[in-house]
Amino acid sequence: MIREWICAILLVSGALFMFVAALGVVRFPDLFTRMHTATKSASFGSVLMLCAVAVYFGNAWVIFETILVIFFIFLTTPVGAHMIGRVAYLLGTPLWEGTVIDELQDRYHIRKRVLESGPHDPATQAENKSKMDTT
């Protein structure tokens, strides 16, 4: 009985998280904020629903397979988001007008295939600090 309740709650809350993800993808203003919801909420929702499957069947093989899928989702979702975000920035996808700061601007050299580290490089920061100390 209690197992059925846990399973039902996991199922419905997972579906609700996925609904939140879809709503965010429709409502948010630019690509990067949309990617925030599409990666976090959608993967979390599918993980909750898979947990519901594991709780419902409760035998070892199903639990093992579910853990495998969950591990796989957690490993691959950030990698996919990283690749899409990077290529979208390279293609010049416009950022939302409410964006506060963009430190990636003018850091790419596409012809040379180099992304420079700019003023936040730890080495240059240490240099600046030693300069400040000596003066």
Partner: peptide
């Protein structure tokens, strides 16, 4: 890229449906 994100989301939803 927006469409790719939406497609990715649709596949996640399909995983939920399969569950």
């Amino acid at each position: 890229p927006d469409r790719i994100v939406a497609l990715d989301l649709i596949v996640s939803l399909a995983v939920g449906l399969i569950a």
